[in-house]
Amino acid sequence: MTYKLILNGKTLKGETTTEAVDAATAEKVFKQYANDNGVDGEWTYDDATKAFTVTE
C-alpha cells in the first residue's frame, strides 16, 4: 500500500511516498526520513487518505 508524507517544516516543505505493509511501518520510515532531514514537529495521520503530516 502507498502512504504519503506531507512535510510542513520550517526549512523543508514537500511530499514523499513510500510503499509499506501497514501504517505503523510507513510511520517508522517517514519519521526516520523527517529526522534525517532535520524536521521535528507535530505528527498527524489521516487513514482515509493514507497521509501523514508533520508540521514544525
Rank of each mutant, 00 (worst) to 15 (best):
A26E: 00
F52S: 01
A48I: 12
F52T: 00
V39I: 15
T11M: 10
T25D: 09
N8W: 11
G38T: 04
A20D: 03
Q32G: 05
T44I: 09
D46H: 05
Y3F: 14
G41N: 01
A23W: 14
D46T: 04
L12A: 07
T53A: 05
N37P: 01
T25R: 06
Q32W: 05
L7Y: 10
V21K: 13
V54N: 01
A23H: 10
D40I: 14
A23T: 09
Y3C: 03
T25P: 00
E19H: 13
A20F: 04
A51F: 06
A24G: 08
D47Y: 08
A26D: 01
T2C: 11
A20G: 04
Y45P: 00
V54K: 00
T49S: 12
F30V: 01
V29A: 08
Q32L: 09
A24C: 11
F30P: 00
V39W: 14
E15G: 06
T2Q: 09
T53S: 06
A23I: 11
G41K: 01
V54G: 00
T55H: 07
L7V: 12
A34C: 15
Y33N: 02
N37M: 15
D22V: 02
D47E: 14
K4A: 05
Y3D: 03
L12Q: 09
D40E: 14
L5G: 02
T44F: 10
N8C: 10
Y33D: 01
F52Y: 05
W43C: 02
M1K: 13
Y45H: 01
T25K: 05
E19V: 15
K31A: 05
E19Q: 14
D36Q: 11
K28A: 13
N8T: 08
Y33W: 14
F30E: 00
T17Y: 15
V21G: 09
K31N: 04
N37H: 15
N35S: 14
T55N: 09
D22H: 04
E19M: 14
T49F: 07
T49M: 11
A34P: 01
V39T: 03
T17K: 07
W43G: 00
W43D: 00
E56Q: 10
D22R: 02
F52Q: 01
A48V: 13
T44N: 08
Q32K: 13
G38W: 05
T44W: 07
G14N: 08
T11H: 14
K4C: 05
Y45Q: 00
M1N: 14
K28N: 07
K13C: 10
A34E: 00
A24P: 09
K4I: 13
A24H: 09
T55G: 04
K31Q: 08
V39M: 08
E15R: 05
G9H: 06
A26F: 00
K10T: 12
A26V: 02
A23P: 10
Y45G: 00
K10V: 14
G41M: 03
I6A: 03
Y45W: 04
T53H: 05
K10R: 12
N8A: 08
T53V: 07
Y33E: 02
T17V: 08
K10I: 15
N37G: 04
D46C: 07
Y33L: 06
N37C: 13
G41S: 01
E15F: 12
T11Y: 14
A23C: 10
E19C: 14
K50A: 06
D36S: 10
I6W: 05
L12P: 04
T55W: 09
A34Q: 01
D47C: 07
T53G: 03
E19W: 15
L7D: 01
A34Y: 03
E19T: 14
E42G: 05
T2H: 07
G41H: 02
K4L: 11
T2Y: 07
E42R: 09
E19L: 14
E27L: 15
F52A: 01
E15L: 08
E15D: 05
Q32C: 08
K4Y: 13
Q32F: 05
D46S: 05
Y3A: 01
L7E: 02
G14D: 08
W43N: 00
N37T: 06
G38C: 08
I6K: 06
G41Y: 03
V39H: 04
Q32S: 07
D46I: 04
F52M: 01
T44H: 11
W43Y: 02
T17C: 10
G38Y: 06
F52D: 01
T49D: 08
A26M: 01
N8G: 04
A34M: 07
T25F: 07
A23K: 14
E19N: 13
D46F: 03
K50W: 05
T17H: 10
Y3P: 02
L12V: 13
I6M: 06
V21D: 10
K4R: 11
T44S: 13
K4D: 03
G41E: 01
K4F: 10
I6V: 09
L7H: 03
V54T: 02
D47T: 09
E19R: 12
A26C: 02
E15S: 10
L12F: 15
G9D: 04
N37V: 15
L7R: 01
G9L: 15
L5Q: 01
E42Y: 13
F52V: 01
T11L: 13
A26P: 00
I6F: 11
A51D: 03
T11E: 11
T25S: 13
A26G: 02
F52I: 01
D40A: 12
K50P: 02
T18N: 04
A51I: 15
Y3E: 02
T17R: 08
G14T: 14
K28F: 08
K13G: 05
Y33F: 12
E56S: 07
K50L: 10
T49A: 12
T55M: 07
E56W: 12
V21I: 12
V39R: 02
T18P: 00
T49E: 12
D47N: 09
T17Q: 10
T49I: 10
T49L: 13
T16F: 15
T55V: 08
V54R: 01
A20T: 05
T18M: 11
T16L: 15
T55L: 06
T16H: 14
T18Q: 05
T17W: 14
G41L: 03
